[in-house]
Write a protein that binds this DNA or RNA. Structure first.
Length: 358
DNA sequence: CAAACGTGGCT
DNA sequence: TAGCCAAGTTT
């Protein structure tokens, strides 16, 4: 039995290889495979659709062509280039890791998954992906696609977002791995998940693995797998702020590294949990002239928060003596050159208008 | 280890 | 609409 199962699996893997050679998409990091381009791609594409990340990959390759350029850049420049992509710790870790490679490793990337794993922002998936694709190391890269393909293929009903399920997927993915061509195999598994073994309406009839798949063609089984334990509920947060400006300059601050929008910029204000902004205000600014309010339409939805933004715009004579050291008094142009959350970036034209800075 | 961490597309 | 999902990692 074990013998026939292994034979069936080998057959499936060999069909996968043929399928990948004829169906893979033409992606830029595949045409000229380098460790830097691959690493950059893997970081950018974490929890991100190819369609969304592609332009960022090109932008980063142009702005920071190699690890030395990236290491030499300021963190603010890297965050600015990352603006709008989300999960900003990826950008900060990318920059930190570039510094490690450039200054501590003599500009030479690690050549093993274990070595890559040491770099900030590189977890088990990214380490396996780069090590297999660039150095031929026989390690299975398990991402969301592979979770789905493997859970359906072996008939796993353990939640894949829990330690036990994760271990089961890794074991099965490791057993399926084509050790002669691990990089192409890992890419093929992910490509299959992206193009054929999709979350909804997978095309089992087109799948090279259907012959050995425990779920193929069984609608209920395919829909159930991969089983997931679920996520925390999204809660409302009112994000209210004061825009203090003299028409030329404005008070802004860099947010701390930890937490939401780490390293991005903001206006002075407050975050109130459990509120939608309507009832939440900030105290009036003494001696300032009220210029109006800017309110984004609808909520700005993060993975775990629903943010209700609202800014009051005030005309002031200059920076207050009691503002504290972390507030910077920048021209609107200087402020806009900083990295901002999408919620604020979108409101920028209305903020400029209310501030009279046009 | 469960929760935190963005944004956009799709149903 | 509200929820799910996308080439995950960190704490």
């Amino acid at each position: 039995m074990k013998q026939t199962q292994n034979a069936a699996q080998r057959d499936s893997v060999s069909r996968l290889k043929v399928w990948f050679s004829t169906h893979q998409r033409d992606l830029p990091w595949r045409t000229h495979r380098t460790p830097y381009g691959t690493w950059l791609c893997e970081i950018i594409m974490q929890q991100t659709r190819i369609d969304q990340g592609l332009a960022y990959w090109h932008r980063f390759m142009e702005l920071f062509p190699d690890v030395h350029a990236l290491a030499a850049a300021g963190e603010g420049d890297v965050l600015k280039a990352w603006q709008g992509l989300g999960y900003y710790s990826r950008a900060r870790n990318l920059h930190r890791a570039a510094g490690v490679v450039a200054r501590e490793l003599g500009g030479v990337f690690p050549e093993t998954a274990a070595g890559w794993r040491e770099l900030p922002g590189v977890g088990p998936y990214t380490a396996a992906a780069v090590a297999s694709m660039c150095y031929g190391e026989a390690v299975a890269a398990v991402d969301g696609n592979v979770n789905r393909v493997v859970a359906r293929f072996v008939g796993l009903d353990e939640p894949v977002d829990r330690p036990a399920g994760r271990r089961a997927v890794e074991a099965a993915a490791g057993a399926l791995l084509d050790r002669e061509a691990p990089g192409a195999h890992n890419e093929a598994m992910m490509e299959l998940g992206a193009l054929v073994c999709t979350p909804r309406a997978p095309e089992c009839g087109e799948c090279p693995l259907s012959g050995g798949c425990a779920s193929a063609g069984v609608a209920e089984a395919v829909a159930r797998r991969p089983v997931k334990a679920g996520k925390a509920k999204v809660v409302d947060v009112a994000v209210v702020g004061h825009v203090l400006t003299d028409g030329v300059r404005v008070a802004v601050r860099r947010r701390p590294e930890a937490g939401i929008w780490g390293g991005l910029w903001e206006f002075p204000g407050a975050w109130v949990e459990g509120e939608r902004g309507g009832e939440v205000g900030l105290p009036p600014v003494g001696g300032a002239e009220w210029r109006g309010e800017v309110v984004p339409r609808g909520a700005h939805v993060l993975s775990h928060r629903r943010l209700w933004g609202r800014w009051g715009v005030w005309r002031v004579a200059g920076p207050g003596a009691d503002w504290g050291a972390d507030w910077e008094w920048l021209t609107w142009e200087e402020a806009q050159a900083k990295p901002w959350p999408r919620m604020t970036e979108r409101a920028w034209p209305e903020l400029l208008e209310a501030a009279g800075a046009l």
